[in-house]
Amino acid sequence: MAYDKIDDAFHYISDAPPGERTAAVHRLTGQVFLASHKAGFDERPAGSETDPDYLTIPHRQDLDPGKPLLLEFVRSHCPAELARVEALFARPGAFRNVKDLLRRKHLLANWQIFESQQIEALLRKWCTAKGLPL
């Protein structure tokens, strides 16, 4: 099964608010079916919602560890800023403010690479847990 198809569908779903787009993968064939409630199309076969051979691909928010992932990055890349970053999470706009801090420290690109790698690892772990051979 091609991981790229699942990854593409994952990004398709995650580029919209949760619930606006969905995707399913057929466990046996690896075929991916997309749907967009807003655009009014649905490629999923009838009955796929209840068929155990079809798995709904998760939205990024379903996999994204959020704050713990960001704190892990800070611990490993700029540990001197950990207390400051933790304090930022006590106020609204924490992620924006932390990203501003990382930008000033010239670490934003490193964060984006780290985050992307971790999300990919989580999606691959999801595939393995669901019995999807990659």
Rank of each mutant, 00 (worst) to 15 (best):
G93M: 06
R103F: 09
E49D: 14
A9Q: 01
E49I: 03
D64P: 02
I6A: 00
L132R: 07
H77K: 14
D64Q: 01
H37V: 11
D42K: 02
K5F: 14
R91M: 04
V85C: 03
A35Q: 04
F33W: 08
F33T: 04
K130Q: 15
T128R: 15
S14N: 04
I13D: 00
T22C: 13
C78D: 11
P18W: 04
V32L: 01
V85G: 02
R104M: 12
F41H: 05
A87F: 05
K67C: 10
S116C: 08
D53K: 14
L122G: 07
F73C: 02
A80K: 15
R21M: 07
D7P: 00
G30S: 10
Y54T: 03
D51M: 03
R27E: 07
D53P: 02
Y54A: 06
L101Q: 11
D15Y: 07
A46G: 09
R21Q: 05
D64T: 05
Q61T: 15
P79K: 08
E20T: 09
P79G: 09
Q117V: 08
T50A: 13
R91P: 02
L122S: 13
H11I: 04
K5I: 08
R27Y: 12
A80D: 14
R96Y: 11
R44D: 10
P92N: 06
D62E: 11
G30K: 03
M1E: 03
L107A: 13
P92M: 04
F114R: 02
V32T: 08
K125L: 14
A87I: 10
K67H: 13
Y54P: 04
D42G: 05
G93C: 06
D42F: 06
V74P: 02
V74D: 04
I6C: 02
F41A: 05
N110S: 15
V74L: 09
L55V: 03
P65A: 14
H106D: 14
D64F: 08
P18D: 05
H59M: 02
A35P: 01
R21P: 09
E81Q: 15
P58M: 00
T128F: 08
L122I: 10
A39Q: 14
E115D: 03
T29C: 10
L55D: 08
I57K: 00
A16Y: 01
Y12L: 10
Y3V: 05
P133N: 02
E115R: 13
L132H: 10
A39I: 05
H11K: 13
R60K: 11
Q117R: 15
I119P: 05
G131Y: 06
L132V: 09
L108P: 06
E86G: 07
P17F: 14
R124E: 09
P68A: 13
E81Y: 12
L63Q: 00
I57C: 00
L70V: 07
A46K: 14
L134E: 14
R84H: 15
K5C: 09
V98N: 00
G19V: 12
K67R: 15
A9S: 02
Q112R: 15
R21G: 06
P68S: 11
D8E: 12
Q118C: 15
V25W: 06
H59N: 01
R44W: 10
S116K: 13
V32A: 03
R84W: 06
G131R: 01
E49P: 00
V74G: 01
A23W: 04
W111G: 11
H26S: 09
D4G: 10
R27D: 01
L70N: 01
F95Q: 07
G47T: 08
